[in-house]
Every structure is written in structure tokens, then in C-alpha cells.
Design a protein around this nucleic acid. Structure first.
Length: 157
DNA sequence: GCCAACGTTGGC
DNA sequence: GCCAACGTTGGC
């Protein structure tokens, strides 16, 4: 099993929103970055566990865990001219952008903030804490996963 | 609200 | 293919 982290602005769609969603599931649409697209399309597999990170928040941090329940498929919002994530260059018969479906697994007992993750031994290489990292879908190593879960007071499994 | 860092676009 | 201009992300 691989581990990942996805970012969402809680003002737009928070972890609490995911918990309230039908089947606690949503499609992870709107990603318009090629590196993140490749991860969504090629690497995220059913059952993989994913940190749910609140960006642009007060405070920003990891709110909980979700899991991949559907593997990469074309992001239909790219070809919907009324959608805010519409991409006029995308074509229905040759999809550029992909998404997965994720389902909430568990909220952390408390938010693990970005501030406290910085400087934690073992997380130096984690994309999230590296300066200038803007990737909205990123890999997390097993070791990083365990460290964050321990800080959160949550089982890593 | 500011702005650094980054990705993308397009002229040449 | 280079790189300046521009738009976006996201911490602070």
C-alpha cells in the first residue's frame, strides 16, 4: 500500500465536509498540474491511504485520513464550460486531467498543524514541509506516515 | 493583503 | 529552445 497527501482549502471543501458527504466519498476534481495529474492517473491505487490537508487555513494542517476508493478516471469538470475548473483545451475524447474518488476513514483526534510538522525529525524530506512546495497531490513515505500518525495520536493502520 | 516560489505561456 | 511575463498557490 502506498500513502499520499492531498490538499484542500477548508473554506471550499473541508474534511468535515467529506465526512458529511454521501458515503463519505467525493471525486477529487479540479487538479490542473501535470505532476499531480500523473499521480492521480497512474499511481494512486484502491485502498491507498491519504492524508487530508487543509491549506490556506487558520491554522493549516492535516485533518484526517481518507482512502482511495476509485482509481484514476477522466475529470469531467475539465470539459464543463460552466465549471470553475473548465479547461478550454481539454477534449472529451483525449482527457488531459484525471481524478480519483476518496472516502473519509477517520478524523484525527486533533488537527496536526504545518507549524508543528516543521522541524520534526524524519520529516525533513516530506514534500509538504519543504519550502515552495505547492504540489496539491503528493507522495508520503511509510515512515513519514507513521511519524505523522504518532503525532496525531492515531493508529497508522 | 503581501509576496516568494513555482508552473505555464508565448514571442522571438 | 530560451526566457520574460504572467497567473496561481499558499504561508505568513
Amino acid at each position: 500500500m502506498n500513502h499520499w497527501l492531498v490538499k484542500s482549502e477548508p473554506d471550499v471543501f473541508s474534511f468535515a465536509d467529506l465526512l458529511k458527504a454521501p458515503k463519505k466519498t467525493t471525486c477529487w476534481d479540479g487538479v490542473r498540474n501535470y505532476q499531480a495529474r500523473n499521480t492521480l492517473r497512474d499511481q494512486m491505487k484502491k485502498g491507498d491511504r491519504v492524508f487530508y490537508y487543509h491549506s490556506n487555513a487558520e491554522p493549516s494542517g492535516i485533518a484526517g485520513i481518507c482512502e482511495v476508493v476509485r482509481e484514476g478516471y477522466p475529470d469531467h469538470t475539465a470539459i464543463d464550460s460552466k465549471d470553475p475548473h473548465f479547461d478550454p483545451k481539454s477534449r472529451a475524447d483525449a482527457p488531459t486531467w484525471y481524478m480519483v474518488d476518496v472516502r473519509a476513514v477517520a478524523a484525527f483526534p486533533r488537527l496536526v498543524t504545518l507549524a508543528e510538522l516543521k522541524g520534526v525529525k524524519g520529516l525533513e524530506q516530506m514534500a509538504l514541509v519543504r519550502k515552495g512546495s505547492r504540489l496539491s497531490v503528493q507522495p508520503v513515505t511509510r515512515r513519514e506516515w507513521e511519524i505523522v500518525c504518532r503525532i496525531a495520536g492515531h493508529s497508522p493502520d
